[in-house]
Design a binder for these strands. Structure first.
Lengths: 218, 218
DNA sequence: AAGACAATGTGTACAACGTCTACATTAGCG
DNA sequence: CGCTAATGTAGACGTTGTACACATTGTCTT
């Protein structure tokens, strides 16, 4: 029993070398797939290693425990959120009036965030359910293609509002948390909360109203 | 081998009758304790039955599966939230001006909600992380001592704002979701999100600012 | 009063999970 | 060429949810 080692020429899990080569990456990608389908609770060490074609304990060479893998998947998911926001901002990039441009850019942060939440609820929950602190909210591993995290994209948009004169400087402090609260709360209500049965057009209406509220209430 | 039956005079798990008597209640209470300490993920069937001094499968006579028990614990937790809101409203009940009273009553919904979230993060998450729909958000099992759920307390306060003239009727529609979004989002940021390391006084400042934003942005 | 039935609790079993310890393999460096 | 560290595997243990069969008992009917 216990096939000693690997019979030459055999392959384990679709791979022909003892080493995997890029297991860390593969585990995170598998974790992202699991999170997409079932949210953070579905990110299991054994399931991820199974997908990577590797024995369960191999994961422990790259992650201290399940929590660490979940952290990595969380970072990757936040990167996707950042990309969604950047895509939404790219749609409104061609505004001539700088004040209007700053406003649209700011609104795009919220709408991009919420559109991603609706399109990829599992990933979205994984991105923000797993506990994060303020330092890691600005770490490079959570950035999109522009190299900025969702949180940084928000602060950037707020700073620009101030620069352009659309937001009084005395109201700038902590404004990111006010805006984030409203948008994140709506996302939760729409995904897992009492509004999860809403149709897309009604959801879109609520999204606009919440962003309106933030713009007006800041 | 299976001790056949119960030797007369023996007692299993601190109880001397074969029947438990009020197991359903006991399981929910045990679940609430688990949720308080560890959030929704900690609400385990086996742990709850263990606390109730009963075999694991006994739970299945009262709940279809773990999800069902979690639903019950969720309802109980929402009841606690409702009580917290009612307590906060009781603090401001003595306002003479009806407009000011309606405003304070409305604000108390948000501050009570957020104070509960800070005081009992595990229960709070359990109350609102477990998926709920709109019908169950108004079911009696989730009510506080006044017989109203947190959601109903919010709609009540908004209705009163309209009655008193503090909120234009044309802005009333869906206002509960806007307010709820902002407050719920801040709760998440404060409990599991990037703001969870904030001190109490700073958290209190943010709470006031978010409620200000809602009052102004509705 | 006696016996049937439904409600309730127990025991056993299985698969999946996280994680510990020991061992096997291999890349890279002297 | 051989040593060492990095990487992967095997086996085991305790936890979880849950299915199935069985035991006990309150209650209702006759």
């Amino acid at each position: 029993m216990t096939t000693i080692g690997i019979p030459p020429g055999a392959n384990i899990g679709g791979r022909d070398t003892y080493r995997h080569g890029d297991l860390s990456r593969a585990l995170v990608e598998a974790g992202v797939e699991l999170a997409r389908a079932g949210g953070p609770a579905a990110v299991a060490l054994r399931a991820a290693t199974r997908r990577a074609g590797v024995s369960p304990n191999a994961a422990y060479r790259h992650f201290a425990d399940r929590r660490a893998l979940l952290e990595a998947v969380c970072s990757a998911s936040q990167g996707r959120v950042a990309e969604a926001i950047e895509a939404e901002q790219a749609l409104v990039a061609d505004a001539t009036d700088p004040v209007a441009a700053a406003r649209l850019r700011f609104r795009a942060v919220g709408t991009g965030y919420l559109h991603f939440a609706l399109a990829e609820p599992g990933l979205f929950q994984t991105a923000f359910t797993a506990s994060t602190d303020l330092e890691s909210a600005t770490s490079g591993s959570r950035a999109g293609t522009s190299g900025r995290t969702p949180f940084q994209l928000l602060t950037d948009a707020l700073d620009r509002l101030v620069t352009v004169g659309a937001l009084p400087a005395e109201r700038r402090a902590e404004a990111e948390f006010l805006a984030w609260s409203a948008v994140h709360g709506l996302a939760m209500l729409l995904i897992t909360g009492p509004l999860r049965a809403l149709g897309p057009e009604q959801a879109e209406g609520l999204i606009r109203r919440v962003v309106d509220m933030v713009e007006q209430g800041l």
